[in-house]
């Protein structure tokens, strides 16, 4: 019962569209918990229920032991929330945004400066700039600083890295790792599968249902199939040719290659090679590789 975040059988619908169905999980104290799924999977709905902005249709959810429906006032004092959309005042400067968010939580930037120092110091040189004129990465840093300024015990970050460049994304995750070390429980959602490996545990979510909850290693460990990376010099036709192949289980694009799994118990890559060569592909490379979270996600779908 003493989980910072606990969800039991939560369902939520918007009119006829089912956004979440029968979601249950717990997050441990000080954990960096990732909710991974494509757009429209129900991530934002789940976050809004947890930060008391929406009521679940069925089931219960608790944050630090408080019920999100009856005790929403308590929850609103202790959580930090960063919505999916940039939600600061664009016509206020960096400093003014910070001061404002500190003031509505009855604290000051000075008082809690140590909490945000690591992050805020990076954007402090631009503190007189209007928030609307910041770059994407700097906006995220400011939003995170504002969400942290009142020393929350649980942090909810809804797609913090969407629309942010690769370097800033990497920096952002490093900041989250450091925050975790301060003992803050962090829930973060992302559509990027490659970020899953940076979490302690992840929940894979699709069409409002959780498919699997485990550590990234655990999820990959559960992947039992042999996965092949296929490359030829006719990458345009290959996907159709593979789909016509009698043993193909899945074949999907992954970067500049194709990830392939076979229906065969013990897949024979030589047979695949000759099949592709028969279809007119040259320079065929077939290598067995280790799966990552995205492969697991595809396998679960």
């Amino acid at each position: 019962m003493n989980y910072p975040v606990a969800i039991k059988n939560v369902s939520k619908s918007y009119r006829k569209v089912k956004a979440l169905s029968n979601i249950s999980f717990e997050v441990n104290k000080g954990e960096l918990f990732g909710i991974i799924g494509p757009d429209g999977a129900g991530k934002s709905t789940l976050f809004r229920i947890l930060v008391t902005l929406l009521k679940p249709d069925e089931g219960e959810a608790f944050v630090e032991g408080y019920n999100v429906v009856n005790q929403f006032k308590e929850i609103r004092k202790i959580v930090g929330y960063m919505p999916g959309r940039f939600s600061l005042y664009q016509d206020l400067s960096v400093e003014e945004n910070m001061n404002f968010f500190a003031s509505i939580f009855k604290t000051t930037v000075k008082e809690n400066y140590h909490l945000v120092k690591d992050i805020y110091s990076q954007i402090e040189p631009f503190k007189t700039r209007l928030a609307g004129k910041l770059s994407g990465g700097m906006k995220q840093k400011l939003a995170l600083s504002c969400a942290l300024i009142h020393s929350p015990t649980v942090l909810f970050l809804d797609e913090p890295t969407t629309g942010v460049d690769a370097v800033s994304r990497k920096e952002f995750w490093e900041m989250l790792q450091r925050l975790k070390q301060q003992g803050i429980t962090i829930l973060v959602s992302t559509p990027y599968m490659d970020e899953a490996g940076l979490c302690d545990r992840v929940a894979l979510i699709q069409n409002g249902e959780i498919m699997e909850i485990d550590s990234p290693e655990g999820i990959i460990g559960n992947y039992t199939k042999n996965l092949y990376k296929v490359k030829t010099d006719k990458m345009f036709e290959i996907i159709n040719d593979l789909r016509d192949y009698q043993y193909t289980d899945t074949a999907y694009r992954f970067g500049d290659s194709i990830h392939f799994t076979s229906k065969q118990e013990n897949p024979d890559s030589d047979e695949l090679l000759s099949y592709l060569q028969g279809k007119g592909h040259d320079n065929v490379q077939i290598n067995e590789i280790k799966p990552d979270v995205e492969d697991c996600f595809m396998a679960l779908m």
């Binding site: 930060v51 902005l53 609103r76 929330y81 959309r85 940039f86 939600s87 968010f101 509505i104 009855k106």
Partner: peptide
């Protein structure tokens, strides 16, 4: 519209 109401609501205000 700007989504800032969401943040205001999730505060002790």
């Amino acid at each position: 519209e700007m989504g800032t109401m969401e943040v205001l609501l999730v505060s002790p205000l």
